[in-house]
Computed example of a mutant assay.
Amino acid sequence: MNRGTEVYYITYGTEPDATSKKYTGSVQIATGEVKDVAIAKKEKGPVAKETFGIVKKIGNY
């Protein structure tokens, strides 16, 4: 990342922006979706998305 670039994230909603939570360290998530974006000099990069959850075993598989 370039100097002056900041990362913002959300755990709900549609798209993160400069008013979202600023990433400063570890984020704890049990289940759900995280979206983040890097912003440098007021230019927004592409939004990244990751989904987390618990896989439940069903049947005899």
Rank of each mutant, 00 (worst) to 15 (best):
M1K: 13
M1Q: 08
M1E: 14
R3Q: 09
R3K: 10
G4N: 05
G4R: 06
G4L: 05
G4V: 03
G4E: 03
T5G: 04
V7C: 09
Y8F: 15
Y8M: 03
Y8R: 08
Y9H: 01
I10T: 07
T11A: 04
T11M: 11
Y12A: 13
Y12N: 06
G13E: 03
G13Q: 02
T14Y: 07
P16G: 09
P16S: 04
D17Q: 08
D17M: 01
D17E: 07
A18R: 12
A18N: 14
T19Y: 06
T19H: 02
T19I: 05
K21N: 13
Y23D: 01
T24M: 07
T24I: 10
T24F: 02
G25R: 12
G25P: 01
Q28G: 12
Q28W: 03
Q28F: 09
Q28R: 13
A30T: 15
T31P: 01
G32T: 10
G32C: 07
G32F: 08
E33W: 04
E33L: 08
E33T: 15
E33N: 08
E33Y: 00
K35W: 08
D36W: 14
D36F: 11
A38P: 00
A38Q: 02
A38G: 13
A40H: 10
A40F: 03
A40E: 09
K41M: 06
K42S: 13
E43R: 11
E43G: 02
E43M: 13
K44V: 08
K44M: 14
K44F: 03
G45W: 05
G45Q: 08
G45L: 01
G45D: 09
P46Q: 14
P46H: 08
A48T: 11
A48R: 11
A48C: 04
A48Y: 10
K49D: 01
E50H: 09
E50V: 14
E50L: 06
E50D: 13
T51H: 04
T51W: 02
F52T: 07
F52V: 10
F52H: 12
G53E: 00
G53A: 05
G53V: 04
I54L: 05
V55L: 11
V55G: 04
K56M: 12
K56S: 13
K56G: 02
I58S: 08
I58N: 08
I58D: 05
I58W: 03
G59C: 10
N60F: 06
Y61R: 13
